[in-house]
Amino acid sequence: YPSASKRPVFTLEERVALCADVLGHLPNVEVRPFESLLADFVNECGAQIILRGLRAVSDFEHEFQLASMNRQLVPGVETMFLTPAEQYAYISSSLVREVAALGGDVTRFVHPRVQRALDERMARS
């Protein structure tokens, strides 16, 4: 469920379908949507680890707060942070969305299936 400050280009159902298309070949990956608290979803799934990405140091404070809150809501579930390779650290969905909306080429930043979906959506806008 996106934060109130985010405006996704695609609906939840569309995002799930795109993720399933892109990741469907991986036998150990399951794409599951949720619109509740992450803590509730983690409990529902029986998960023990939450993986979060950190692009920059500026992400850390917010992510640390989320991890601390989740630790209170679901004790025993750990949050692990992953950092990207340097060549990907600047990429964000907001920037990709903006470049695509302005007609820029985002093929280096997204899977070809996502590129097609973005092209179709931006053509309708």
Rank of each mutant, 00 (worst) to 15 (best):
Y1V: 02
S3K: 12
K6T: 00
R7P: 00
P8H: 09
V9H: 00
F10K: 04
E13C: 00
E13M: 02
E13A: 05
R15V: 06
V16H: 04
V16N: 03
L18C: 08
C19G: 08
D21R: 11
V22F: 00
V22L: 06
V22G: 07
L23S: 10
L23W: 13
H25K: 15
L26Y: 13
L26S: 11
P27H: 14
N28R: 11
N28M: 09
V29C: 08
E30M: 02
R32C: 01
R32N: 00
P33C: 01
S36G: 12
L38M: 13
A39K: 14
D40M: 12
V42K: 08
E44D: 13
C45M: 10
A47L: 10
Q48E: 13
I49N: 03
I49L: 10
I49P: 00
I50T: 03
I50G: 07
R52W: 05
G53F: 03
L54V: 14
R55E: 00
A56M: 06
A56F: 08
A56Q: 06
V57S: 06
E63L: 02
L66S: 03
S68E: 14
R71G: 06
Q72V: 07
L73C: 08
V74P: 00
P75M: 09
V77D: 08
V77E: 10
T79D: 07
M80Y: 11
F81R: 09
A85E: 11
Y90T: 02
S92H: 04
S93V: 04
E98P: 00
V99H: 08
A100K: 06
A101P: 00
G103Q: 12
G104C: 12
G104H: 09
D105R: 11
V106E: 09
T107W: 02
R108S: 14
R108E: 13
V110W: 05
R113L: 14
R113G: 01
A117W: 01
L118G: 04
D119Q: 14
R121Y: 06
A123T: 12
